[in-house]
């Protein structure tokens, strides 16, 4: 029976390639985490003139900010990984 804990399958011709895809996806995620935080930091700083870690965590995007943020995310994801769909 399939389960989340069975050994990870290899879909690509060599398991090294499978693991490298994981690495590349994780790097992208870490990059986005940093960008997203910097964006929130700048937004809070612009609005309030002061910023704390607490303020960053509790910031809420306006609907426009959220839409812009997701559009930026989609651009980054596409730029990073579009090549993987051109096989």
């Amino acid at each position: 029976m399939p389960s989340a804990s069975e050994p990870e399958p290899s879909f690509l011709p060599n398991p090294i390639l499978d693991r490298l895809v994981d690495v590349v996806l994780e790097l992208g995620a870490e990059l986005w985490i940093e960008r997203d935080r910097r964006r929130v930091l700048e937004t809070v700083l612009e609005e309030r003139g002061i910023v704390t870690a607490e303020m960053i965590e509790h910031h809420r995007d306006t609907p426009e900010q959220r839409a812009a943020r997701l559009a930026e995310r989609d651009r980054l994801v596409k730029r990073l990984y579009d090549a993987l769909g051109k096989l």
């Binding site: 965590e57 989609d74 994801v77 596409k78």
Partner: peptide, 20 residues
């Protein structure tokens, strides 16, 4: 916030895989 950004990123990856 880092969890949110992380999950949003993978949501973007999923969108790319499915839509594109």
């Amino acid at each position: 916030l880092a969890d949110e950004s992380y999950l949003d990123f993978y949501e973007g990856v999923r969108n790319l895989a499915i839509r594109e």
